[in-house]
Amino acid sequence: MEYFAPKSIAEALSLLERYGGEAKVIAGGTDVMVDIKYKEEPGCLINIKAIGGLAGIKENNGGVRIGPLTTIRDLETSALIRDKLPVLWEAAHQFASLQIRNTATIGGNICRASPSGETLTPLLVLEASGNIAFSDKETAEPFINFFSGPGKTTLGAKGLLTAIDVPYPAAESRGVYLKHAVRGAMDIAMVGVAVLITPDAAKKAVRDVRIGLGAVAPTPIRAAKAEASLRGKPLTPALLKQAAELAASEASPIDDQRSSAEYRRWIVEALTRRGLAQSWKAATGKEAV
């Protein structure tokens, strides 16, 4: 296995251009090192941690720009994230152990593209996008288009995620991230649900709602039908229940050793219902009636 520690994005991109599919990019290493030990060794390892300027959290054009090398712990301890992007903060907070949070990076979590990746559903409901660099171009890609399958993204073998842009949601909006796992934060999520809800001015009807589902499809997804069923309507318990059932029907989970597909659907239903109710209450001060 060859090993490189490029000092610049350009150098990293040229290495990716040269080694392509053989190369593995490593940042925090909490997934890559385990794969090297227990699965396959890649032909070449490109450690991007020495590239300057890729870590940090700063306000930028009505949102936050997060460097991909920012650790999960940095997100968790950032007042800005906690204050302005509580849904993302909650995901960072429920992310494995403190030791892992100190090491794992948000860029790694995104590029690993695990359907259960903790930060992904919050990024989807926040309608965040990634800045993606190739040796010959650079684009901004909304994350909703970024994930193409388990472990697969539009980065392909030669792209590098260089920034994460998260626009601030509407000031009246409230949201939650709910994770279901037998052992809480320490486990890979069986189901993760992120909800962001914005009431209308009268706090009667749903102006906007976004529901992200994790670990229940080949990629993290938005529950578009469930969202559509709620928009513009007063949030009644019956509507809430129906939306949760819709969300469950939009999931396409698998059976594995962690749980059955059927159980994952039940949990999507339960967590969506809870997430909507909690967010609505936080946004309006009222229960759904």
């Binding site: 227990y38 037998v182 052992r183 809480g184 320490m186 486990d187 890979i188 594995d256 050793q257 962690r258």
Partner: peptide, 28 residues
């Protein structure tokens, strides 16, 4: 509450690591 060794029909252990073999944590 959580522990078991899970087998598939061919007799392969599906959860040999501590990620998947669920021992309770102190939180439980």
């Amino acid at each position: 509450l959580c522990e078991q060794v899970v087998f598939d029909k061919n007799g392969r252990t599906m959860n040999p690591s501590f990620v998947d073999y669920l021992m309770p944590t102190i939180n439980m």
